[in-house]
């Protein structure tokens, strides 16, 4: 465990009353390599509290079509791990917003776990989410991550047992990622997420007691976010944001439209 307060922890500590923390997921290098840094800074200005920066992988088997698409675009445009660290460094010149790298374990293993964690720390990364390294397997990276001051964020799902939730809480630092529905990432129709979350969040609140909780998967707008995050600390939006980019890019003014979408996600219609 890191003893000094991490950037992620301080976001939760500074949270006022009923405010919800908004974490935004964006694939590094999507829609192009040049825009990622600007987008992150723009997200912050428009209400994002945390950034999850996706490290693209050729075979993202926990992701739906939207994030698969963004990953493919980014890989085709020549994204590399070094370029991702470069993006984080550029954000750090201007901002203290916490950045969590999110991605599959294979590219990390290929880079070398120690080199990866060390470069992550040096560039200003705050934490890691690795969906295909659950607590059984995270020993492969856990100690290197801790040594380099990176928070390790694990997931709980609606089908996780109570014991499992407790174990995940114990292993996690920063926050616990609550997957709202069983399934891959991607926007959901109607009230599927809200219905699933009802019972699930009750159990989460009983079992996850030492970390803040963010809920994600399937949130597509302000109304969803408000409803679904009612009993947790905040929410995560990914696929809906990427869809918003996909709809506008590369039309003139696409970035402004995307930032407007982000602003609305956080504050609703004002």
């Amino acid at each position: 465990m890191t003893t000094k307060t991490s950037r992620i922890q301080s976001v939760f500590e500074k949270r006022n009353g009923d405010d919800k923390i908004m974490s935004l997921f964006i694939t590094a290098g999507y829609p192009d390599l040049e825009s990622t840094v600007d987008l992150i800074l723009g997200f912050e200005e428009n209400g994002a509290d945390l950034i999850e920066l996706g490290m693209p992988f050729s075979d993202p088997l926990a992701d739906g079509p939207t994030i698969q698409y963004a990953s493919n675009v980014s890989i085709e445009k020549g994204i590399t791990m070094k370029k991702i660290f470069g993006m984080v460094r550029q954000v750090r010149e201007k901002s203290e917003i916490p950045i969590i790298l999110m991605g599959y374990i294979n590219p990390i293993l290929r880079y070398g776990v120690e080199a990866f964690c060390s470069d992550a720390e040096e560039s200003g990364v705050d934490g890691l989410i690795i969906p295909d390294a659950p607590i059984e397997e995270s020993g492969i990276i856990e100690s290197a991550a801790r040594e380099h001051g990176l928070d390790m964020i694990y997931l709980v799902a609606p089908n996780s047992t109570d014991e499992r939730m407790k174990a995940v809480d114990e292993k996690s630092s920063g926050f616990v990622y609550c997957v709202s529905v069983t399934g891959v990432t991607g926007a959901r129709q109607g009230d599927e997420v809200a219905r699933s979350v009802e019972r699930f969040i009750g159990r989460v609140n009983t079992n996850v007691t030492s970390n803040p909780k963010l809920v994600g998967f399937g949130i597509k707008n302000y109304e969803d976010a408000k409803l679904i995050s009612e009993r947790v600390d905040g929410y995560i939006v990914g696929s809906a944001l990427i869809e918003a980019i996909r709809k506008e890019y590369p039309n003139k003014g696409w970035k402004e439209s995307v930032l407007q979408f982000v602003n609305h996600l956080k504050f609703g219609n004002i």
Partner: peptide
Amino acid sequence: KQGYFGKYGGKFVPEILIPA
């Protein structure tokens, strides 16, 4: 017991599949 053949194998899956 953890599913390792030497250093190979394991359960590198999303949380949702762990109960399954």
